[in-house]
Design a protein around this nucleic acid. Structure first.
Lengths: 344, 344
DNA sequence: CTGTTAGCGCATTCAG
DNA sequence: CTGAATGCGCTAACAG
């Protein structure tokens, strides 16, 4: 029977009491010990290859030192969010538990269970922009679960969330187009009902586009199409593009819209970056840089958002911030200048 | 002081002993109870909103019911692997702990610690093809850690790994090209030294390409270029493509090679799917379907591989398979026919 | 500053 | 089938 090395073994070997071992490991305030003892403990730990039992420790302290990251796992950027979370967690001695398929509310029940089982100390969900689920909010609040959403609940102040500044993202895109001396852009808005009609971020973007054009005495031109419907097939875009005056600039709310233009241009033999300029206000599929020519865009900084979410959650958990403080965190977008606007 | 609901509370309320509660929850063999009692327990659990304390339970059983998934988190397909793992784990009542930045051996130390801390019961790493680290193997073996690699250790029989069948992937690609009646392909091999020279998968692919051409009495044509070096710039490919006789078929070991051809074709005004046909033997950047026109490829089924890895790991952990059985698991690739070979 | 002790909540054993 | 008792390994409180 192979038995575990315990703090008791370490204490015995180091010639100290178990409390000292614990204190050395956790920097417990209020328990002092000589430097000599400290070194002895460390030495014993190394010699015996001792590792704290996270289960026992957690049981005692009521902390699992784990956060749950929840998403439906279908989105490429979730990985980026994880990278950010992971980094923040690691430096705080926490770990990240994956929790996928969180699109349906039903699945989310599992998250609450995870918390009730004390497997996790808090929850981060990556929600779709403008997502909001009152049922979930009620449950979270009732149980007092430390929680923060990434991109969700933009208009619900009772839930903490990490949001991108959509106004700023449009400003960056439009300024970029202006700086490059391209024609004022047509705004292409692709939306997917029912979830995204109208999406909070999209409304912000559209508003700002109109404002921006107005301020310059230009007439806003908006093309609004429904995603994945007959009305958004290649043929329609080819016809549309054929009727436009060149050179043309197109700014799309979603990279999928930009790709429609790429496809239409390809079919018409038009050259992007010369005959027409295209820019995306997002990078949902994480594919902009790989398009040919590469697609300029304003990108949502998911890594930073994940890091910020984790940081806030840890504040709640460690009691450095009241869980009732559900203030929003805004992260600025990032401009990626590429070939489709003649740069790169 | 808010106190936890324990199995004791449940037992009291249901009018049974704690052992029965435990037995009902875990289907403990050898402990019987009447159906009536079972329902009473279930009812009490619901009424009190009782949840097993995973920490206490884990401490008692010596199982955390968590697997670690390790990768450098830079690869898009890691997410796919996670989806597969997650699915398998969920149905077995296990969870997935993220562990990123595991490329360097140094970082991997943390994985071993996770195990020593009993935070995880086993480890899955996503390694680069033909990755092999003897030091790591030694440590794993020494500590008897349940472990399996995805795509690593293809030539080391002492480590369990999930591998794709590279020969089959080439066969699928070549047959597809033949079926479409396209010209016999030139094989473009992009490699990144030092790690990938020569990569196990690439060797297999190349070997098979040569064999396949030989069998048909055709002369193999191989273009070998180093990734991200002067020799792999746009200009070189443009020159190369200019010299080729059209129509041309190109099969690349890595989607990056296919993109070089897309770029060159774009610059030369050639049309993919008409003047030249392109196919990739992988989808590393998960971007093939978004290219314009979309890129046909043979894809590594990461989701299945993740699922298979988790399943094997659980067998080790649950004692259904000897940890010394390190046999390989081969997963067949998946052909995605798209526009670049005239299909889609 | 040190050593002892009392749980944390569970699964399991053993005597009834 | 039940109830009581044991111990997993740790931390925190308390008495020396």
């Amino acid at each position: 029977m192979k038995t575990r090395v315990t703090s008791f073994d370490v204490a015995k070997r180091a010639g100290v009491s178990r409390s000292v071992v614990s204190a050395v490991l956790n920097n417990t305030p209020g328990i002092g010990y000589s430097e000599e003892k400290r070194l002895a403990v460390l030495k014993a730990i190394k010699e015996l290859n001792y590792h704290v039992d996270a289960l026992a420790s957690g049981m005692r302290t009521g902390r699992s030192r784990c956060l749950a990251a929840c998403d439906n796992l279908g989105n490429k950027f979730f990985l980026q969010m994880l990278i950010g979370m992971k980094e923040t967690c690691t430096s705080a001695g926490y770990h990240v538990l994956m929790y996928g398929s969180g699109t349906t509310v039903n699945e989310r029940k599992g998250l609450v269970q995870l918390y009730m089982q004390r497997r996790i100390d808090g929850i981060i969900t990556k929600d779709s922009t403008s997502f909001s689920d009152p049922e979930w909010v009620k449950e979270i609040k009732l149980l007092g679960i430390p929680y923060i959403s990434v991109e969700g609940y933009p208009e619900d102040d009772s839930i903490a969330s990490v949001l991108m500044d959509y106004r700023l993202s449009m400003e960056m895109a439009l300024s970029h187009i202006e700086d490059r001396k391209l024609p004022p852009p047509v705004y292409v808005e692709i939306y997917s009902p029912p979830e995204y009609r109208p999406n909070w971020g999209d409304r912000k973007r559209r508003e700002y586009y109109v404002q921006w054009m107005d301020r310059r005495g230009l007439a806003p031109r908006i093309v609004e199409r429904e995603h994945n419907r007959r009305e958004c097939l290649d043929e329609w875009w080819i016809e549309w593009l054929r009727r436009q005056e060149l050179p043309l600039t197109v700014l799309s709310n979603w990279s999928c819209g930009a790709r429609h233009l790429y496809r239409a241009a390809y079919r018409l033999g038009l050259r992007i970056g010369e005959d027409l300029f295209v820019m995306s206000a997002d990078n949902t599929e994480q594919t902009n840089e790989y398009l040919i020519p590469s697609l300029s865009s304003v990108e949502v900084p998911y890594t930073e958002m994940g890091a910020a979410a984790a940081a806030r959650l840890l504040e709640y958990i460690e009691g450095e911030r009241d869980i009732a403080d559900t203030s929003k965190i805004y992260i600025p977008p990032r401009l990626e200048q590429r070939e489709s606007t003649g740069g790169g």
